[in-house]
Computed example of a mutant assay.
Amino acid sequence: MRNTNRPLIKAKLLFLLILLSACQPIAQQPLARWQHAVEGAYAANISNDGKYSVVSSIHHGISLWDIEANALKYNWSQQQNSADNLVLAADIADNNSHALTANRHEFSLWNIENGQSEGFWSITESTIRDVAIANNGTYILIGQSNGKVVHITPGTGRRLEFLGHQEKINAVDMLPNGRVAISGGNDFVAYVWDTVSGQVIYRFNHPSRITMVALDAKGRYAFTADSKKAAHIWDLKTGQLISSLKYSNRQEVFSAVQFSPDGSLLLTGAPSRKVSVWAIATGERLTSWRVTPREDIRPAGAVVYSVAFRDNTQVITESSSGYAELWQVTN
Rank of each mutant, 00 (worst) to 15 (best):
N114K: 10
P293N: 00
S320R: 04
R158I: 04
E318W: 04
G119F: 06
L88V: 14
N103T: 11
A281E: 15
G184Y: 05
K73A: 08
Y139G: 04
S227A: 14
S56G: 15
N85W: 12
A324Q: 03
N85T: 13
I26Q: 01
A181N: 07
L31D: 07
L326C: 02
W34L: 10
A214K: 15
W278I: 04
G184N: 08
V253L: 15
T124D: 12
W76G: 06
N186L: 13
I201Y: 05
S272R: 08
D49R: 09
S276V: 01
R310P: 02
T138K: 14
H206K: 10
W121Q: 05
A90Q: 06
N96L: 00
R179S: 15
R33I: 08
K229L: 10
W65F: 09
G155C: 00
A308C: 10
Q314F: 06
V87T: 11
E68V: 03
W65I: 08
A43G: 12
V54L: 02
N114P: 06
S197G: 06
D296S: 13
S208E: 11
E161G: 04
G157Q: 03
L17E: 08
Y191W: 06
P271M: 01
L241Y: 05
P261R: 10
K246E: 13
A32M: 05
R33D: 01
N81L: 09
Y52I: 00
S208P: 06
A230M: 15
A27I: 01
Q35H: 02
A324S: 09
H105A: 12
P271D: 04
V189F: 06
Q29S: 07
H36F: 10
N205W: 05
N170M: 14
H59I: 04
L245H: 12
V87I: 13
L13V: 02
V200A: 10
G157D: 03
Y247K: 02
A181L: 09
F259D: 11
G157M: 06
L267E: 06
W121L: 07
E284P: 06
R285W: 06
H98K: 10
K51F: 03
I297N: 00
A217T: 14
V150A: 07
G157L: 07
